[in-house]
């Protein structure tokens, strides 16, 4: 039975696509047959982050409308054996994603895949609602910043009232908080909400904390999911998050600022 995971946030630019790329790569790297779907119709970007933008022939909407088969539209990742990408359409309207159409595609994928990762568009409109509707679990990507936290709470409300699980009275969607662009130095200086603050406000279990890192931009420049940068803090933090998603106990890392010597504290800070 395939598990459907939506990566969502409400607010744009917090790291949904970066997270979708890394989580799906991490799951596939452990041998799970994984597909990651771009739900951002009209603003497709997952293909760039996954470095397959020049291999897109057919897309999600083509499959929904019967213009292509799933096998024609799925792009096989060149780095990880069991990973596939289903790109969004760049030319259609968001309304092309119908509930029945999405269900049909997800059902067909569920026959052969272990994990289906849905990369949601920003906002709370149709596209975002379609991405989360069939989810079993949700990764809510949040930055330690007021507008992102508020929007995350809003999306949690939608998960609890407008998902298939809520409408059908099933067990609720399992919610996970993923805090990204975390800067422990600024937290120490009282300039940034801490992990504890955000956990207290949103009141959902913490999946991971991704430190703010230059590696993330470097990786996206090259179309490399950051989790494959095994030596980097952000890559390792994503790897930990994948472990926790699979039920492993992992201690949270990268939450404290690097210790500074006496001189650097006195003269630079």
């Amino acid at each position: 039975m395939a598990k459907i995971i939506v990566v969502t946030s409400g607010k744009g630019g917090v790291g949904k696509t970066t997270t979708s790329a890394s989580i799906s790569t991490g799951l596939a790297r452990r041998g799970f047959k994984t597909v990651v779907i771009d739900f951002d119709v009209g603003l497709r970007n997952l293909d760039l982050i996954m470095n397959c933008e020049r291999r897109v022939v057919y897309d999600f909407v083509n499959v929904i409308q019967g213009e292509a088969s799933l096998n024609q539209a799925l792009i096989k990742d060149k780095r990880v054996e069991t990973l596939y990408i289903l790109p969004a359409s760049q030319t259609r309207e968001k309304e092309a994603l119908t509930q029945e159409g999405v269900e049909k595609v997800l059902n067909e994928l569920a026959e052969t895949f272990d994990y289906i990762v849905c990369d949601s568009p920003a906002g709370i409109e149709h596209g975002a609602q379609m991405a989360l509707y069939y989810a079993d679990e949700a990764i809510v990507v949040t930055n330690p910043e007021v507008s992102s936290v508020r929007d995350s709470d809003r999306i949690l409300g939608i998960l609890q009232s407008k998902s298939r699980r809520s409408e059908m009275g099933l067990d609720p969607v399992k919610e996970h908080l993923l805090l990204t662009r975390y800067n422990p130095d600024r937290v120490d200086r009282g300039e940034m909400l801490s992990v504890g603050d955000v956990e207290e406000i949103l009141a959902i279990p913490l999946l991971g904390v991704i430190p703010e890192s230059q590696i993330v931009l470097n990786a996206s420049n090259q179309g490399l999911p950051v989790i494959l940068e095994d030596d980097s803090d952000a890559g390792q933090a994503y790897e930990d998050a994948v472990g926790r998603l699979l039920g492993e106990e992992r201690e949270h890392r990268f939450l404290t600022a690097a210790k500074k010597g006496f001189f650097s504290r006195m003269f630079k800070g």
Binding site: E145, V146, V149, R150, V187, R189, G190, E191, M192, L193, S194, D197, E200, I201
Partner: peptide
């Protein structure tokens, strides 16, 4: 300096 993180937390 003023702790703005606390202000953010209370407002949220």
């Amino acid at each position: 300096k003023k702790n703005t993180a606390n202000v953010a937390k209370e407002r949220l």
